[in-house]
Amino acid sequence: MTSPEGSAPERHDVLGRLGEQVSDLALVVARQTRTIERLVDAAKSPAAAAVGDTALLVDLFALHTDAATCAVSASEADRPAFELLRDGLERLIVGRGGVVVAPLPGADFDARTMEAVDVLSAADTSADRTVAELLRPGLVVGERSVRPAAVVVFRIS
């Protein structure tokens, strides 16, 4: 006969299985905790924030472009205000993880972030495949070029 609680060996087996299950459960919880921590850390990174804010960054960039256009065509009295607005919008874009691409003349042409809208003939070989003029700035969010900068490029003819 066995007691209602079971024999000592049966209780030992039950306790052994229960111990294994608790151990397995502890491993699963530890693994899930590490995964959650990695996801939280990734979500806190500027690149992840930028990707999540792409729509906002595109809208801010459109306002930035409008302010830059107004600064060029504004009167001498109004130009500083539009330039301040443009610069403030650029700080917001950069603060949210975006990059305004505005290469200066002489910079190397980068097909990942720029679009060659026109080509000018260059006699100097050192000018080959460099930016001659910036027509419109571009926007990079994370690793992705959302809007390439429109540039005129020198090419050896």
Rank of each mutant, 00 (worst) to 15 (best):
R31K: 13
V99E: 14
E90K: 12
G97Q: 01
F154Q: 08
R136N: 09
P137W: 12
T130K: 03
L57Y: 00
T113K: 08
D87L: 03
L18F: 10
V58P: 01
E90S: 06
S3M: 01
G52D: 03
V117W: 11
M114E: 15
L92M: 09
C70L: 14
S7G: 15
F82C: 11
L104A: 13
S45Q: 00
V152P: 04
L39Q: 11
G16R: 14
A47G: 10
R129F: 05
V117E: 14
G106C: 03
R31N: 14
H64R: 06
Q21S: 13
V72H: 14
R91L: 11
L15K: 02
P137N: 08
E133W: 00
P4A: 09
L104Q: 02
L57E: 03
A71H: 09
A43H: 00
A43P: 00
E76Y: 06
E133Q: 14
L18W: 08
D13P: 04
S7E: 09
A111G: 01
V72N: 07
T69I: 10
E90T: 06
M1D: 04
K44G: 05
D41K: 04
T130A: 01
R129Y: 03
S23N: 07
P9R: 12
L27K: 15
A116M: 10
A8F: 01
Q21L: 14
I36Y: 02
A149T: 05
V14R: 12
A150Y: 11
P137C: 11
H64N: 12
E10L: 12
V40L: 09
D128C: 02
A102R: 03
E83W: 02
V58C: 02
S75P: 05
A26R: 15
I36L: 13
G88Q: 14
A48D: 07
H64M: 11
P137G: 08
E83K: 13
G97K: 00
T65F: 13
G52C: 01
P137D: 09
T54G: 06
V151W: 00
A150P: 02
L134T: 04
E143T: 09
E10W: 00
A102L: 02
R11N: 07
L39C: 07
L15W: 07
A111S: 14
V28I: 11
P148W: 09
